[in-house]
């Protein structure tokens, strides 16, 4: 009974998601809304503005370094929480 409910629920979710995929812009097309001027700016001016030829590195450690700082904080807080949880009596 529970398995049947799970399968029906998942079929509903998969149905909704697959019909979303049908409406998505075509895969890999350069005219997709995700390929906008931010991306062009990073690729064209990235080397000149940060000195790094790896654009992903220049995005995560220069343009969006605050994001990476928060990421390091998340890792730090998670391990602090895990350790205090494990050492608790």
């Amino acid at each position: 009974m529970r398995q049947l409910l799970v399968v029906i629920f998942l079929a509903l979710i998969a149905n909704a998601l697959i019909f979303t995929v049908v409406e998505m812009p075509p895969f890999g097309s350069p005219d997709n809304p995700s390929n906008n001027q931010v991306n062009q700016r990073y690729v064209e001016k990235g080397v000149e503005e940060t000195g790094s030829i790896n654009v992903v590195a220049s995005v995560i450690m220069d343009y969006r370094a605050f994001d990476t700082l928060g990421e390091a904080t998340v890792l730090f807080v998670a391990i602090a929480a895990a350790l205090s949880n494990l050492k608790a009596h």
Binding site: V47, T50, G51, S52, I53, A57, S58, M61, D62, A65, T68
Partner: peptide, 18 residues
């Protein structure tokens, strides 16, 4: 100092942060 793009010692802060 950013150095010459493509060299090992370049890109200033990114190198140290990584």
């Amino acid at each position: 100092p950013l150095g010459i793009p493509g060299n090992l010692i370049s890109s200033g802060m990114i190198f140290l942060i990584s």
